[in-house]
């Protein structure tokens, strides 16, 4: 059965590239344009996604708020969340980790690294 990934990123370019990369690896993809939209999509998805990839800096609701919101929901409590961002500071990593993030990938990403990380957090 194909795994479903929820992408949360305000950049259409990044969403398109992620979609191409993930669909090329036989994942199903649902995307959202910011944290608020991500929470709504997460609530509406049935079944729940197998993993979430989120940006940090987004309008309306940033990645930290999204992760905390997802962790506050029953269905989002145990879903692996990978942060995909241009940020590299240790303080922001710590903040994301405290919010409940599972891993951290720096943009621009290598497709092999992203797929390897996904495989690791949700299994093949």
């Amino acid at each position: 059965m194909e795994k479903t990934i929820l992408i949360v990123d305000d950049s259409r370019t990044m969403r398109d590239m992620l979609r191409r990369t993930l669909e090329g690896a036989a994942y199903l993809v649902v995307d959202a344009v910011d944290g608020q939209d991500g929470l709504e999509k997460l609530e509406a998805m049935n079944p729940a996604p197998d993993a979430i990839i989120t940006d940090i800096n987004m309008p309306r609701m940033d990645g930290y708020g999204f992760i905390e919101g997802a962790r506050g929901k029953d269905r989002g409590r145990h879903i692996p969340v990978l942060v995909l961002t241009t940020e590299t500071s240790a303080e922001k990593k710590t903040r994301a980790k405290n919010a409940g993030a599972t891993g951290w990938i720096v943009k621009p990403f290598e497709a092999s690294v992203l797929l390897s990380a996904l495989k690791r957090v949700i299994g093949s």
């Binding site: 980790k97 891993g103 951290w104 990938i105 720096v106 943009k107 621009p108 290598e110 990380a117």
Partner: peptide, 13 residues
């Protein structure tokens, strides 16, 4: 520039 970053790649929490 990301090229000089030492954080490229996947970091597991």
């Amino acid at each position: 520039s990301r090229h000089a970053s030492s954080d490229d790649g996947w970091e597991d929490f």
